[in-house]
Design a protein around this nucleic acid. Structure first.
Lengths: 111, 111
DNA sequence: TTTACATTCAACCAACAGGTTGAATATATT
DNA sequence: AATATATTCAACCTGTTGGTTGAATGTAAA
């Protein structure tokens, strides 16, 4: 299970369409910072910052070759987040079953 | 599939431990704003703002009874987010299979 | 060795997030 | 009618986000 802070970083990184697009691009293979930035309608520096956020969340790894930085997609945090959400959903759903909810509603109505 | 903006809102809402704790609290049944705020070490107003974020993400629904506002947890956006992540992960993983990655690495090496 | 390229660093800015306090509003209770 | 409770609204503050531009750094190519 991811530590809360790890989860925060993963979800924050994913909660931005530019960063999701970067991940999608990298899912088809390594690319340099410039390559990743090319399709976006913003400065290279802006994309570089987004990449930093993804690195902090360990969704992207960097391999330096001379002046080029090759970026690659790392699926592990996504796996962990998906697992956390699925487990949490199950747990929460179990606390919302029909009978329990009915009893709580009655309790609330009688207050 | 959730619209990108919906996904943004869901992930943003989930990327905060206070808001996750609020959802957890509500997963065991309805509660009023004051009840939800009680355990937190912050002002009622701060919690009220967090609830607004959760409402915007449709993770919480509000039912007003007199001066009391009863809040309830809505799992649907969580389901949608989990589904999106799972599908995306599968899609991205399929583009990262061993052969394709090998070919791309050779291509990169020969540049 | 000069020039071009890939990238970050640094400073700045506007908008937003997350918190505060104080007042306003609406409803209950006495 | 007066008071207490539940909640939001409004203004404010501080720190962060997401963007910009310009300069610095390191490496490759002419």
């Amino acid at each position: 299970m991811p530590t809360p802070q790890t989860l925060d970083r993963t979800l924050t990184a994913l909660a931005d369409p530019t960063r999701r697009a970067i991940l999608q691009r990298l899912s088809s293979g390594e690319a340099r910072v410039t390559d990743v930035a090319q399709p976006f309608n913003m400065s290279l520096n802006a994309v570089s910052k987004h990449i930093l956020v993804l690195e902090r969340a360990k969704l992207v790894k960097r391999r330096k070759v001379g002046r080029d930085h090759y970026l690659s997609y790392r699926p592990e945090p996504l796996d962990a987040a998906a697992k956390w959400i699925a487990e949490t959903r199950t747990f929460w759903a179990s606390r919302l079953d029909a009978l329990e909810q009915l009893l709580r509603d009655e309790d609330a109505a009688n207050r």
